[in-house]
Design a protein around this nucleic acid. Structure first.
Length: 803
RNA sequence: GCAGGAAUGGCGGAAUGGCAGACGCAGCAGACUCAAAAUCUGCCGGUGGCAACAUCGUGUGGGUUCAAGUCCCAUUUCCUGCACCA
């Protein structure tokens, strides 16, 4: 009799052994493989089973690479600055430094329950001064390169979090963190010039092995468009209004112009009779929230009374104001071609403006258009010299033609905005800048970094647009590093994204006091080969991290331009009915109880079995029983068959090779849920074979080796009990031989007119004639009428078509 | 509105154009047990049938093919992202 599987004793035993002798010791001679998890922010709620999923996937992948003879860089750290940590601290009435440290301790304990091969010597914490020294250092370098600059501007403001937000943090007009409606607030801001990298951020997406979905989201976010700026003279004035258009080919069809109400010329253009109406419209627009403005598609507007002159044909077109034109995109003014744009069409209909068709399907203009013709292809009409030209070709040539005419210039526009980088909150890296009345903004000298976040009694947000740091006079008042005169410190802090934009570089050299990362270590261990995390960071963290990496490349810190070669986004684990796990919904499942009751190995495998890893999956506690039973069956099978010690048979060799191939190919394609079901199938098959003769040693060893990345404790224990030396992770990944996977006799379904009527056994190399004869015999009486066609797909199917 | 993804038993899900429902959960029946748990065995899409079997069946309607969950066209619903970006 073999002993029964007891997860507690097995897991306790191997954890102790692995602590003393890690399975992934640092080894410079081996090829490196850097497998990175998106590091967590230390939430007070601890981890739920959804967090586990990503960590299990990355650990399985890491251990799989380990068994290919690589040295695995698999670090973990803490994204501990920022709003969530601070809001939690305020709620609990604790200082964020304390609650953050407590939460890290708890989550670290939970993460260690996963038994992943994390190298805790590499641990980083974004709130550690030795870490944020370099976060500040990067900011100073950006400042020196002119990529960090100050600007007074209306920015997105969350009235609940009492801080400014980046565009990326505003989702459907609401705060990404708390869901409050975002308003505008005019504030002096630190900005990062991410737009300077727009082209590289867009073009280099092609070099990345990332999910297409994420690449598309980034590409849409950057939103590059090509077109022209066209200058319209204001009739009876020296003023010129420049518009941006991607469709300069439709210039002859422009019948009016619309400007954003915030446009600097808006009020100036109002004629005496229209002035009151224009002022009223500008005022009304200013009252509307951005959410309200985005949601209602009903066109509103006001005529300024002024006209602009279309440079292509000299025609006068009225200038209107409307809030559907955005002040901060392009030039804040657009030429309107109602015949070929849905929005302009709706506006023209509402205010009874003329519609002139300039592109037609067949060269003939339609009377009274019912809707805008928005297709790019067609023949130009009503367009002077351009008549008869193909519009899609003209669209490409028109910007240069307009430039030659002196009516404008060819340009490119982006939706991407510069990054609003200051936060009016306490729990973040202080921006290392000193404001001197004489010298202006001066960076804190590098040898004085880190600029420590001062301790403070009141760290709650003020809501005034000033950070709580502004109240600490002893800290704010300092001297200018340039001239030594009294000066004041910048009191805004950095956003949470600052630390996470580069943390993955620091892991490999986390104790370096001289440089962010040494060139030798960067060359040896970077960049990241595989990055695993949720899709929610597609246009936030992942875009910012790419920007930072490109900048650090440009100043010579690293020699690569892209931080993450391959990206995998795991789906979310939700509660019943797809509801997101949250404390307020009361549907959070903690891994702690499951580890206690079923063991780490069972939970690891169930996390993968619950559904395809890239899709969201509903958690159901009951399913873990099935995994636990499976592990007990494997345990019993391996130990009982080991005692029998039977020789291998041809069929065992075949099953073993099939098993290796199936498990390996499914793992390679990240079909991790079917890897687990594959293990179950082969275990069931081998259990049947055990009853019918027995299972040989090599097959048992192979099963155990394949299982190691998934259920490391069980595999390690069975590996030892099979009498093998060393760790199972020192075994190399099993290989398979296709030629040993063929059956001598194959089962072939026999179909009559496409419907299966029988299954027959045939030798694998049976001739077509023999196969058909056997099939006809199997069909017997069922085969009536004339045989029209006979199809034999070797090893697959036989189909007889008869009428 | 635009773009992408999805739709398969009671449930989660599996199927390089080749026996739909693997694997697991739940359920039912049996064995073991004084009993329960655990474990083991069998059944487990609908309809008809004692059964062998027949027949229908992958959101809906068409099509291609010897053969369609899979490919093509149309359509509905749901999810995700973007959303007046000129």
């Amino acid at each position: 009799m073999v002993t029964a599987y007891n997860h507690r004793s097995v897991e306790k035993k191997w954890r102790k052994i692995w602590d003393e002798k890690p399975v992934n010791p640092k080894d410079e001679k081996k090829e490196k493989y850097y497998c990175l998890d998106m590091f967590p922010y230390p939430s007070g709620n601890g981890l739920h089973v959804g967090h586990w999923r990503g960590y299990v996937i990355s650990d399985v992948w890491s251990r799989y690479q380990l068994m290919h003879g690589k040295y695995i860089i698999h670090p973990m750290g803490w994204d501990a600055f920022g709003l969530p940590a601070e809001n939690y601290a305020i709620k609990m009435g604790e200082h964020p430094a304390k609650s953050t440290a407590d939460n890290i301790a708890n989550i670290k304990r939970q993460i260690q329950e996963i038994s992943a091969i994390y190298d805790w010597d590499m641990e980083v914490n974004t709130t550690d001064p030795e870490f944020y020294k370099w976060t500040q250092w990067i900011f100073v370098q950006m400042f020196k390169k002119g990529l960090a600059y100050e600007k007074q501007m209306p920015i997105n403001w969350c009235p609940s979090c009492k801080t400014g937000l980046a565009n990326e943090e505003v989702v459907n007009g609401k705060c990404e963190r708390c869901g409050a409606d975002v308003t505008k607030k005019n504030l002096r801001q630190w900005m990062l010039k991410i737009t300077a990298y727009a082209d590289r951020l867009l073009d280099d997406l092609d070099t990345l092995d990332w999910p297409e979905k994420v690449k598309k989201m980034q590409s849409d976010w950057i939103g590059r468009s090509h077109g022209a700026e066209v200058n319209f003279k204001v009739d009876g004035s020296d003023e010129t209004i420049t518009v941006y258009t991607t469709r300069p080919d439709t210039l002859y069809g422009c019948t009016f112009m619309v400007m954003a109400p915030e446009h600097e010329m808006a009020k100036k253009l109002a004629t005496e009779e229209q002035l009151a109406a224009v002022e009223d419209y500008i005022y009304q627009t200013s009252l509307r929230s951005s959410v309200d403005r985005m949601q209602s598609k009903e066109k509103t507007g006001v005529f300024t009374g002024s006209y602009a002159i279309n440079p292509i044909n000299g025609k006068k077109v009225p200038i209107w104001l409307s809030d559907y034109v955005l002040a901060d995109y392009g030039t804040g003014a657009v030429m309107c071609v109602p015949a070929h744009d849905d929005r302009d069409f709706a506006f023209a209909k509402k205010f009874d403006l003329p519609i002139i068709q300039v592109i037609s399907k067949d060269g003939v203009a339609i009377e009274n258009m019912e809707e805008a013709y928005t297709e790019a292809a067609g023949t130009m009409v009503n367009s002077g010299d351009w008549n008869g030209m193909e519009s899609s070709e003209l669209k490409l040539k028109a910007p240069e033609m307009i430039e030659k005419m002196g009516a404008g210039k060819k340009t490119t526009n982006y939706k991407l905005r510069d990054w609003v980088f200051s936060r009016q909150r306490y729990w973040g890296e202080p921006i290392p800048i000193i404001h001197c009345p004489d010298c202006g903004a001066v960076p804190v000298p590098e040898d004085q970094l880190p600029l420590l976040l001062p301790d403070v009694d009141s760290y709650e947000p003020t809501g005034t647009g000033e950070s709580p740091l502004a109240a600490i006079e002893s800290w704010v008042n300092t001297t200018c590093p340039c001239c030594g005169k009294p000066a004041k410190r910048e009191t805004n802090t950095m956003p949470q994204w600052a630390g996470s934009s580069w943390y993955f570089l620091r892991y490999v050299d986390n104790k370096n006091k001289e440089v962010l990362v040494s060139p030798e270590k960067a060359a040896k261990y970077l960049p990241v080969d595989m990055y695993i995390g949720g899709v929610e960071h597609a246009v936030l963290h992942l875009l910012y991290a790419r920007f930072y990496t490109k900048f650090l490349h440009d100043i010579g810190v690293v020699d690569f331009e892209e931080p993450f070669k391959k990206l995998f986004n795991q789906g979310m684990i939700t509660g019943k009915n797809g509801i997101k796990m949250s404390k307020s919904k009361g549907n959070v499942v903690s891994p702690d109880d499951l580890v206690r009751d079923y063991g780490c190995d069972s939970l690891r495998m169930y996390e993968l079995f619950v559904g395809p890893p890239e899709l969201d999956s509903e958690w159901d506690d009951r399913g873990i029983d099935g995994i636990n039973r499976f592990l007990k069956r494997v345990w019993k099978l391996v130990l009982e068959e080991h005692e029998k010690n039977v020789p291998e048979t041809k069929e065992l060799v075949r099953v073993r090779n099939c098993m290796v191939k199936d498990i390996t190919t499914r793992l390679e394609t990240f079909s991790l849920n079917t890897v687990i079901s594959g293990f179950m199938e082969y275990t069931n098959t081998l259990t049947d074979m055990a009853k019918d003769g027995g299972v040989d040693q090599l097959t048992l060893e192979t099963l155990v080796t394949l299982l190691a990345p998934f259920a490391p404790h069980v595999a390690e224990e069975l590996h030892e009990q099979l009498g093998k030396e060393g760790s199972v992770f020192e075994e190399s990944w099993p290989e398979y031989d296709e030629s040993k996977m063929e059956l001598d006799v194959v089962e072939m379904p026999v179909q009559l007119n496409g419907k299966t009527k029988a299954v027959i056994s045939l030798p694998k190399d049976v001739s077509k004639e023999d196969a058909i004869a056997a099939a006809k015999e199997a069909l017997g009486d069922k085969l009536t009428g004339n045989v029209i066609k006979e199809i034999v797909v070797p090893g697959k199917i036989i189909n007889i078509v008869a009428k």
